[in-house]
Design a binder for these strands. Structure first.
Lengths: 343, 343
DNA sequence: GCACGGGCGGAGAGCGCTCTCCACCTCGTG
DNA sequence: CACGAGGTGGAGAGCGCTCTCCGCCCGTGC
């Protein structure tokens, strides 16, 4: 009995068979209370910990899921992909929400990135070799081929956001259109009449929805044309976008940015142009991220309950893992407007 | 031959033994080229993927490491710990740096949090049951008991930052004192004469080192007394700290904050008091995080090569895993001053 | 021409666990 | 008092892989 103790060792100490120890550990079937006690004793004295690999081998479960951040197909210039991912606090909140749900269930997420074809293969391979029971997938770009690959491989997975092309896979999303409407309502209610928008990249579905939802809502208010520029969700693109917007439409009095980081950038540009926020120009962001309260004036923004959404993803994934016939499901969360000072 | 193909299946298709297929896959010993070819063929046609659990069972390696974020001993009020962790972009960069090193080696990090005694036990148990080969440990508080627990359990691990109490465990750290000196040099060179500091929490070693390093350097410049307030690395604490500092020492003309988030908060407070940065008051932050460029004026800050440091942690960890007798090592990185507009 | 060595494939023993039988024992019942 | 039902523990067969032996065969040297 050297090295790590095994079931065998515990069984010997307790004077029972391996099977009985296994039963006690897994709480399966009745085992007489006194024997249970003896076994617990033996486990304690030997310091036994079940070997995960051995257990996985027979149960076909690992007790871990992949948390995959997936990019487009192309290569990423400049900074490595991993660093980019974390630049936006977005991913951190999703990870946190997922962990909050998974951890009490003894499941741990394995961090993976899939920005290139090679990396995608690695992810699929990882899943197929049974290193994780399923995947939580966050795509940063619309045309991500990974969801399809996963479906083809028949692996359990849940997406963050509706896939660009219809794919039979469960997902959790926000009603982006409803969020954009909230922003439009607020801007109009404040009396803004010349409203513009800084959208996210067009190849991201959420960007499209936020943009069109905003445009439609404004159209209903009698503003059929809304000037807009395309950003890429970064601080800098928001700043640059706002400069462009001001150059072309100096009389703007309201801006809806597709995320807080860009709204924050817009604030900077506005200040540079001497516009007071919210008096001259009202600004609304999206996400209610930490950036929203880190700038002055603090941002009025559309709140996305990311942690809850991520938790729901985890819940759905476990359901899929548990029951392979679990119906493909989508859950859409409602947004909420958080009013602060910028609008 | 249904379900997932196994080694056996491949062997049958290729007309060789299991052992030979295993050799081809793992590249061990010479296998005649033509047989190698046949085996590769068979692997392709069967779509074989080695089962990780089975392999782990015999190799005693999992190909994954735990990435543990560890808190103090107490409970965490308000937001759940997971969310807090990601509020600061710090952790994201560390994770990114580690992944950049591990991924090419086919190793994936498992995300874990250890903020309570129960969670710590879970981490230790997870490691002991062989679910991960080792741990990369980032402590957010000084008196974290986890390093000691890990050492006692004889598990391979590498820390971010020197442990509060001497522990025989490898770690990677920054020369915080050198970084603080850089800040002092800059402030003095700009002509600041009434300098103050917003430090991090005193129970974090890095905070102490930055503070004492700064004080010592300023003392050498003939400023034996440096007013200071204690923050907790958040934006808000920086803002509040700056207000306090200005109330007590209205003539301050230079501030060294122990991280960028607090420096950013200080900027806000200074603006509110009508002080121009850097002309009235120069501000220097620490970390060179994304926050440094997201504010105006952009922050002059002490750069900590986090990604490289995290990569080094991963390198050391793999060395420890590879060779259990690998000597306990510490690697100290030098900081660099990044000059922007705030000082 | 024969012994010997080296290269190379196969057989088989586990790694530590779960889970399906199966056997036993104790009740309760006719 | 015999018998069946139901509850409990044990035996043993794998899960899919790696790795140590072993043995075969061919080439080389004396």
């Amino acid at each position: 009995m050297q090295g790590t103790p095994t079931l065998e060792d515990v069984a010997r100490v307790a004077g029972v068979s391996r099977a009985t120890v296994s039963r006690v550990i897994n709480g399966i079937r009745n085992v007489a209370p006194d024997i249970q006690e003896t076994v617990q004793q033996a486990i304690a004295t030997t310091g036994y910990v079940p070997n995960r690999a051995a257990r996985s081998l027979v149960t076909r479960r690992t007790g871990s899921v992949a948390l995959v951040v997936s990019g487009a197909g192309g290569d990423v210039g400049g900074e490595p992909f991993e660093s980019q991912v974390f630049a936006d606090p977005f991913f951190g909140r999703v990870a946190g929400g997922a962990v909050a749900f998974l951890r009490p269930r003894g499941i741990h997420p394995v961090l993976m990135f899939a920005e290139t074809a090679h990396a995608r293969d690695q992810v699929i391979g990882y899943l197929r070799q049974g290193s994780a029971d399923g995947a939580l997938l966050v795509s940063t770009h619309g045309e991500d081929p990974l969801p399809r690959l996963i479906v083809e491989a028949g692996l359990p997975a849940v997406l963050w956001a509706r896939p660009a092309r219809p794919t039979p896979i469960s997902y959790v999303d926000l009603s982006h259109r409803a969020g954009a409407e909230l922003a439009a309502d607020r801007l109009v209610a404040r009396g803004c009449r010349r409203v513009a928008t800084i959208s996210g990249p067009f190849d991201v579905r959420a960007s499209q929805d936020r943009l069109s939802g905003f445009q439609d809502a404004m159209a209903r208010y009698g503003h059929p044309y809304i000037p807009g520029v395309e950003g890429n969700f970064t601080h800098d693109s928001g700043e640059a976008g706002m400069h462009r917007l001001l150059a072309e439409h100096p009389d703007i009095d309201g801006v809806f940015a597709a995320n807080d980081l860009m709204a924050q950038g817009a604030l900077l540009a506005l200040r540079e142009h001497g516009r007071a926020v919210p008096d001259d120009v009202a600004v609304i962001g999206f996400d209610d991220s930490s950036a929203a309260t880190a700038c002055r004036p603090q941002l009025t923004t559309v709140r996305q309950p990311m942690e809850d959404m991520a938790g729901e993803m985890a819940r759905l994934l476990l359901a899929h893992i548990e029951d392979p016939d679990f119906q493909v499901t989508s859950v859409i969360f409602p947004p909420a407007l958080v009013v602060r000072q910028s609008a």
